[in-house]
Simulated assay, not measured.
Amino acid sequence: MLFLSQLTLGYKDLQVLKISDEYSIHRVIYSLFEDYRSNAEKTSSVKSGFLYAEQKSNSIERRFLILSDRAPNIRNEKIGTVITKKIPENFLKFSQYRFRLLVNPTIRDKNTGKLKPVIGETNISVWFAEKSVSSWGFATSDLNVTSIEVLNFKGKNGNLLTISRAEIEGTLTVTNFELFASSFAHGIGRAHAFGCGLLQLVPIYQ
């Protein structure tokens, strides 16, 4: 079972919670969920069980969409306004969807083995279209890279983190329903902890 939540932080919330960068957002959203992973699992590939993406941002309000495998725990938290609902079982049974996605586009350097960002709208579009079919269970059309940004902020231990993030919109056609459902539930690409990877879907009724 999956849950979809909307978190709205008003002006006072932003001030009280000291929202200033991506790590402060990460801290607030992660506080809504008990972490069932061990320390070893946290440093490995075991997922947190939730994804999030920012929907709206201005000086007086910020709004986030959260997908999770458990409902957020807000009984003892005074964190904005949270509205949660269960995702219907048939939501992932459609053949086509309109989608929006914030994604961290990266490739592994063949010489060094290190990850590096995919640069430029055309390269990001090609990367995403190829990965969609091979890794995520869907084919794409009408792709549009609406924004590209580089985020620089300090992490938990004060170390500097840099993440490239692109916003992509378009239409997808499911080619592998099992893989597509896994991609939706577990996220696309990397940097899930900092607002990347959540497929925001609107079914296309035929």
Rank of each mutant, 00 (worst) to 15 (best):
F33K: 06
G170A: 08
R62W: 00
I204Y: 06
I148G: 00
F138P: 05
F3E: 03
A139L: 11
F64E: 08
A191P: 13
N123Q: 10
P203V: 00
S20F: 03
K116F: 04
T84Y: 02
L198I: 03
F94C: 00
K42D: 02
K47N: 12
L161M: 13
Q200S: 12
I188Y: 09
I124T: 12
V46S: 11
W127N: 13
N73F: 04
S5P: 02
G189M: 08
T173M: 05
S182H: 11
L67N: 05
Y97W: 05
S95W: 00
L172S: 11
E34L: 08
F91H: 11
V133L: 12
I124V: 10
S24H: 14
G49I: 04
G113A: 12
I60A: 10
R75L: 09
S31H: 07
I83C: 10
K86Q: 13
E61M: 11
I119L: 10
I29A: 07
H192P: 00
K56Y: 15
I124F: 08
G137R: 07
T8G: 04
S164W: 11
D109M: 05
F50Y: 15
I25M: 03
R37C: 04
Q15N: 02
F138K: 06
C196L: 03
G10F: 03
I188A: 07
T106F: 04
E167I: 05
R62T: 10
F99Y: 03
G80Q: 12
N152W: 00
K154I: 01
L2D: 06
E89T: 13
A129W: 05
L151T: 01
D142C: 03
I124R: 13
T106C: 01
K156E: 14
V145W: 09
Y52D: 02
E89D: 15
Q206K: 13
V145G: 11
R37N: 12
S132K: 11
A139Q: 15
S5V: 04
S141W: 09
S45Q: 12
K42G: 00
L201T: 06
L198H: 07
E167F: 10
K85W: 04
